[in-house]
């Protein structure tokens, strides 16, 4: 059956070509020289704000650490997701176990492109899908601030992921689909300055969409349901809708939102819980203007109904 042989041959060629294309398409891409040139010298005082906006300690502090111990970024938290368990590594200034030996360009490639100094892809559990929208100069400021934090030795355990998610190269395809430095919500010229500033904080360093936006089959955020709430990727339960759509927080005023970010209290004096507690404590370290900007942006974005399925009514 010569036709069968031919078919197998074609399939083989296609397969090899596909794999080769996949290999090329999945290659890690680092920042270009023009972007690196925008990093600038960096300022630790300004970087402190970016550190809290970015919530680095929520994932990289030792689990359960309180107070100043949250500045010891030894890693070790277990993020249990459907893809497996991710463990944020030591990013303290220890030159061996942490990132004390990294250059500012190394940090910028990690945060803006998800690429390691040795040219490997990071998993998007490190929320660079959001950090990619940050200004290079803010990364340089953050770098300067991280330099002021203690060096702590000790390696965190490795990620434990099932096949095929354990193959880093495959992340290159994910990046082609989802990695972008462009804003999620287009805002017209003449949009008030606080809304613009809020967009930057929410969509970039604040990475609010990573938890509050539902994801598609490949783990990308659904931009058409931006911040509509989602089934929690980690820890169970749901993450609420923070748009003004049905089920969301349309009845919260801008100052209710800003107050929640500062104190953790909702307008009816419930107190924030779950993964939001760390986020809120970080937000409390920002200025009142920054919190007001975030609130202004949340009031300005398109409303959506809840991005997670309704729970079955309990039988009572």
């Amino acid at each position: 059956m010569p036709w069968l042989k031919k078919l197998v041959g074609v399939a083989l060629i296609l397969g090899v070509a596909g794999a080769a294309a996949g290999w090329l398409l999945s290659a890690p891409v680092k920042l270009d020289a023009a972007t690196l040139a925008q990093l600038g010298p960096g300022d630790a005082a300004r970087g402190k704000r970016i550190f809290y906006a970015g919530g680095c300690s929520s994932c990289h502090a030792k689990p359960g650490a309180q107070g100043d111990a949250r500045l010891q970024l030894v890693g070790g938290l277990e993020l249990k997701t459907p893809f497996g368990t991710f463990v944020p590594p030591n990013i303290s200034q220890d030159p061996k176990d942490g990132i004390g030996a990294w250059s500012v360009a190394d940090l910028a490639n990690a945060m803006l492109k998800g690429v390691s100094p040795t040219g490997e892809h990071f998993y998007p559990a490190f929320p660079y899908g959001s950090y990619a929208r940050m200004k290079p100069s803010d990364v340089a400021d953050l770098y300067a601030f991280l330099k002021t934090l203690p060096a702590v030795s000790g390696k965190a355990p490795d990620n434990s992921l099932a096949f095929p998610f354990n193959i880093r190269r495959g992340i290159g395809l994910w990046k082609r689909l989802y990695l972008s430095d462009q804003p999620v919500i287009p805002l017209p010229d003449g949009t008030p300055e606080p809304v613009m500033a809020g967009r930057y904080l929410v969509e970039g360093p604040g990475h609010c969409g990573e938890c509050h936006t539902p994801r598609d089959f490949a783990g990308g955020t659904r931009k058409g349901q931006w911040l509509a709430g989602a089934v929690a990727a980690e820890g169970g339960g749901v993450v609420p809708n923070i748009t003004s759509g049905e089920g969301g927080i349309g009845n919260w005023s801008a100052s209710d939102i800003a107050n929640y970010l500062e104190t953790g209290f909702t307008p009816d004096f419930d107190s924030a819980g779950g993964a939001m507690v760390d986020v809120q404590r970080n937000m409390a370290e920002l200025t009142a203007d920054d919190r007001a900007a975030i609130a202004a942006y949340l009031k300005a974005i398109p409303p959506h109904p809840n991005g997670y399925p309704a729970r079955k009514k309990s039988t009572k």
């Binding site: 820890g235 339960g237 953790g264 924030a272 819980g273 779950g274 993964a275 507690v277 404590r281 729970r311």
Partner: peptide, 17 residues
């Protein structure tokens, strides 16, 4: 006091939608 509310709700409470 508010920080105690947060600490307990952080570990022992889950929003179910």
């Amino acid at each position: 006091i508010g920080s105690d509310c947060g600490t307990c709700h952080q570990g022992y409470r889950i929003k179910k939608g």
